[in-house]
């Protein structure tokens, strides 16, 4: 039988350790000193994936809406921590804003995709919701980090221009909109670019997975298409939200540049 899912047995799993030996041999031959990390990494990857496998199986069987929501909120929290951890040279604390941004954009786009487009039974089927929301989060997280970083560096690099605009009688938004626009653009560009090359340069992981699991490629691409435009929409919303929620933090209550920005 050509199509269909082929499970990996315990024996086959043990056999795959041959691949670890190959990696280890390279490390030893080249005296890379990576052997210990390799063993530890392989062990961790195995344990982590097994655990998440069992956990997901458990969650899928429970299929409880409240638990699903709690998991997605936890995922949003971890993603927002990761997004703001990468933005270092910033004059304000964006953690709450990025959590709100990621939660809002993920739920908005995720619910549209799950309820209206995929429409599983019940609509909150964990098997659909968790991977879909996870993909949205992973991409929005990168976009939020990029947009935040760019907004801060643009405004910092053009602080004299922003202050001059304020001196003309501009509102904080008018004084910084040009740079905020650039930040949104920076956050969205990788996603838009990925739409151009998909299928030509690489086959996305999700589609590859579905094909391996036995899905007809012409069916898998439909899913992939929905996922791509869903990611683009979520990224656009996330970028817009994160800059709207945070640009005012660079100004004080007298609509002038905040001292934090000026002293950076």
């Amino acid at each position: 039988m050509d199509s269909g899912y082929i499970p990996i047995s315990n024996w086959q799993l043990i056999l795959s350790l041959v691949l670890v030996l190959i990696t280890g041999l390279v490390s030893m031959l080249m005296k890379l000193g990576l052997f210990k990390s390799l063993l530890w990494g392989t062990f961790r990857a195995f344990i982590q994936l097994m655990l998440i496998g069992y956990l997901l199986t458990f969650i899928f069987e429970l299929n409880n809406l409240l638990i699903i929501i709690a998991i997605i909120l936890l995922m949003s929290f971890i993603a927002s921590r990761e997004a703001t951890r990468r933005v270092t040279k910033i004059a304000f604390n964006p953690s709450i804003s990025s959590f709100l941004t990621l939660t809002a954009s993920t739920f908005l786009v995720g619910i549209i995709v799950v309820v209206l487009i995929i429409a599983p039974e019940p609509w909150y089927s964990a098997r659909i919701v968790i991977p879909i929301f996870g993909m949205i989060l992973g991409n929005s997280m990168n976009a939020v980090a990029l947009a935040l970083d760019r907004m801060h560096s643009e405004i910092y690099a053009h602080i004299d221009q922003v202050e001059q605009m304020l001196a003309f009688g501009a509102t904080p938004w008018e004084a910084s909109r040009y740079y905020i626009r650039k930040a949104v653009e920076a956050g969205m560009t990788p996603t838009i670019n990925s739409l151009m090359v998909v299928g030509l340069v690489s086959l996305p992981g999700m589609m590859t997975g579905q094909i391996l699991a036995g899905m007809d490629p012409s069916e898998a691409v439909r899913y992939q298409f929905v996922v791509l435009i869903m990611i683009a929409a979520a990224v656009a919303i996330a970028c817009l939200l994160i800059v709207s929620l945070t640009y005012k933090k660079m100004f004080n209550d007298d609509m002038a540049l905040s001292e934090n920005i000026r002293n950076k």
Binding site: Q164, A167, F168, G169, M255
Partner: peptide, 19 residues
């Protein structure tokens, strides 16, 4: 309002700012 104030009481910096 600060915006109204700044447009009527206008500051011109020493270093000319050009857009």
């Amino acid at each position: 309002s600060p915006v109204q104030w700044r447009s009527e009481i206008q500051f011109v910096s020493q270093k000319p700012i050009i857009f």
